[in-house]
């Protein structure tokens, strides 16, 4: 039999996620200028990390799985940063 997590951890994770959902929803109705986008992204990234750590059990799993999880995100960052470095440095794109 494999080790299992205390049910309390799952409930706490779900509550944190629902609170973050409420936060992102409420912040959208306040005008913060460019910080609306930053806040929305920061909360979304936090939610993704919380889900990965506790629901997907990245916390407590092997280094190999940590590497596989981070690798997907790394490739996404390469995709986005290289493309944007192109778009943002061309004067003909408004």
């Amino acid at each position: 039999m494999e080790k299992v997590v205390d049910p309390k951890i799952y409930f706490r994770t779900a509550i944190v996620l629902l609170v973050l959902l409420a936060a992102t929803w409420m912040i959208a109705y306040i005008d913060l200028g460019p910080f609306n986008l930053i806040a929305a992204l920061a909360i979304a990234i936090t939610k993704a990390i919380v889900i990965a750590l506790f629901f997907m059990h990245i916390k407590g799993s092997s280094r190999l799985l940590h590497l596989a999880a981070v690798a997907g995100v790394m490739w996404l960052l390469i995709l986005i940063s290289l493309t944007l470095s192109d778009y943002f440095t061309r004067s003909w794109v408004q």
Binding site: A28, Y29, L41, A44, A52
Partner: peptide, 25 residues
């Protein structure tokens, strides 16, 4: 299968603010 389901949840966590809450409402 659980990992797959949680992943689909994570994608929606990004879609909701980016599509529905763009800028401020």
């Amino acid at each position: 299968a659980g990992l797959y389901w949680h992943f689909v949840d994570i994608v929606w966590c990004f879609l909701f603010p980016l599509l529905y809450l763009v800028g401020h409402r």
